[in-house]
């Protein structure tokens, strides 16, 4: 017996191809904005410290992850840190602003208690090592974006 869901002999079935376009904005908020402005204007990497947990968050955040405390103590952390882990991605994707290979890692900046995800540059991927000391290289033209830091390069 023929059912309504049965595909007929020789019949085409329809497949839709499309792209979803949704314009959006996103508010960084006062704390996120100050982080980005310090980066743009003073090449400073700012964190916030929870006095109750003695933990420094980078990038700065307004609420402590551990204790839900409202944070108001700003601290400048070093532009130098340690590579905790890294990845080298050879696959290019349309949304990705960086050319391949995309070399990036988690860096713990000196003075921070959190990992900071960013690009690694001026380094042969073969030479990358966990534990490597790195330093931020800032772009000449900064616009108030996390990519105002061009990448982190190995310390000589």
């Amino acid at each position: 017996m023929q059912t309504v869901t049965e595909k007929l002999e020789g019949m085409d079935v329809w497949i839709y191809h499309g792209q979803i376009y949704i314009p959006n904005t996103y508010s960084a908020g006062a704390v996120g904005s100050r982080f980005l402005i310090e980066l743009r204007d003073k090449k400073r990497i700012m964190g916030t410290r929870c006095p109750a947990c003695n933990r420094v968050y980078v990038p700065a955040r307004s609420i402590c992850k551990d204790c839900f405390g409202q944070l108001d103590e700003w601290v400048e952390v070093s532009d130098r840190g340690t590579v905790l882990t890294y990845a080298v991605d050879h696959e290019s994707k349309p949304i990705q602003p960086m050319a391949t290979p995309i070399v990036y890692g988690i860096i713990q900046l000196d003075g921070a208690d959190t990992g900071f995800v960013h690009m690694l540059g001026e380094v042969d991927p073969e030479q990358l090592r966990v534990g490597m000391k790195v330093q931020a290289v800032f772009k000449e033209e900064r616009v108030g974006n996390i990519l105002d830091i061009k990448y982190f390069k190995p310390l000589a």
Partner: peptide, 10 residues
């Protein structure tokens, strides 16, 4: 504009 989405929720 003064808060991010998570901060507003808090």
């Amino acid at each position: 504009d003064d808060v991010s989405q998570p901060e507003m929720v808090a």
